[in-house]
Nucleic acid binder design. Sequence first.
DNA 1: TGGTGCTGGTTACGATCAGGAACCGGAAAG
DNA 2: CTTTCCGGTTCCTGATCGTAACCAGCACCA
Lengths: 145, 145
Amino acid sequence: MDVRVSETAPLPKLATVQAAAPADDTHSSDACAVIRSILARTTDKWSILIVKSLGRGPHRFSELRRAIDGISQRMLTLTLRNLERDGLVLRTVTPTTPPRVDYELTTLGESLWTLTEAFGQWALSNRPEIEAARTRFDARLDANT
Amino acid sequence: MDVRVSETAPLPKLATVQAAAPADDTHSSDACAVIRSILARTTDKWSILIVKSLGRGPHRFSELRRAIDGISQRMLTLTLRNLERDGLVLRTVTPTTPPRVDYELTTLGESLWTLTEAFGQWALSNRPEIEAARTRFDARLDANT
DNA sequence: TGGTGCTGGTTACGATCAGGAACCGGAAAG
DNA sequence: CTTTCCGGTTCCTGATCGTAACCAGCACCA
């Protein structure tokens, strides 16, 4: 039983970036456009980190802010709002004082989480190789300046 | 030909670790910054689509441009350059006339491809649910305006 | 009674960066 | 000698991001 939002701030339209215009005529490209807008949202830098954090269980707003090094309050709010909009995250307000807001993954969000987790693991285990490649590339670039 | 990474490669400024960090050991903040830069690059909207295309075999520059609906020449060049830098994509120039440039995934790139493929599948199969969630959310938003 | 702090935001605004349009240079083709 | 194709690059603008500051409600302290 969740204490749904209902009484939060007026929730102005603020962002929720309207996805790409569907006004595209090319045959397969309309599906493509939607998929792309989903990917753009779910693979967004902050979204990934938030989903990753929430994968370890529900978190409060400020816990997330502390957990995700470098995120600004604004981007946290914005990204959470978008994730909530896409049904990936559930926002629960508990009207204590001070008010308490918990965020957790929905079932859909959890399925996304397994993917982002895999991505994280991949990044982690291939980090040395990628950094080496970067160094090589930059060196070659300097070489023929 | 000083291409330089002017617009690319924000190689993170080593994480300004606020000391007295909360004992949230799950992120070691400097590793986190590097991982984040890798994720930011590899999960970038265009990177995903390029890797996805290259997953089906080597492609020439203009083939990619045609295959990826909506990408501009500039972003294609830029993104390919970044992927090449990270050792995910191999660029091969054949000096015929007109010159021919082929791009293909490296082994590392292929391992990334399996992940992006999974992401694509996920987006595809969860599209209805996500769109429904968006509609619900927007409706609720309108409701209490 | 008023000040301070905690909560979860929101607003204003300047810096930055993604992205489209247009340009480039060489060779072949007409 | 003009056009076309190829793979880029340069220029410029508008969207987006992050910083900093503000807000409302309530408890605590004096």
